[in-house]
Amino acid sequence: MKKQKYTISFYSFTSCEGCMMNVLLWLAQNYKFFRENFVINHMKLLMADSPTKYGEDIAVVEGAVSSKKQLSEIKEIRKNAKILVAIGSCAITGAPSNNRNFLDDEEIRYYVKKFKQLEKVVSIKEVVNVDYELMGCPISVESFNTLIKQIIEKGI
């Protein structure tokens, strides 16, 4: 019997994408393992189209939530994913992508209004239920590797 593969997606919210850079390095180091165990559903960095919208076994999310659009997107992701993994400080605390929470001037207020931003930048953790979190700025490749393997071992 063919081994069952899990679907996995990688989403970037408001961030420097540094955590995703390390995910790419993880992918590079574990490519064989990855291909044996996973099929990617969404990863804008490497693929143009997603086979299906949302609904993956594991959704890996980097970045903070700063706009209304992002807020509804993360909720959709959460609703449909079996497991949600928040990676990096931005996703877990909002910082350092939440500079504007500590600044206040006309320009920021204008920006928030005009571009349908949330009043304050929030973390993924503040707005949806997170199954696993991995801290770091950026996350380390090794601990991401360990976490993913633990998740598989536990079963999805």
């Binding site: 919210f13 700063s66 500079n99 500590f102 920021i108 920006y111």
Partner: peptide, 10 residues
């Protein structure tokens, strides 16, 4: 379409 992070200002 990036959401601003205001590093310059910060």
């Amino acid at each position: 379409e990036e959401n601003r992070r205001f590093y310059q200002k910060a």
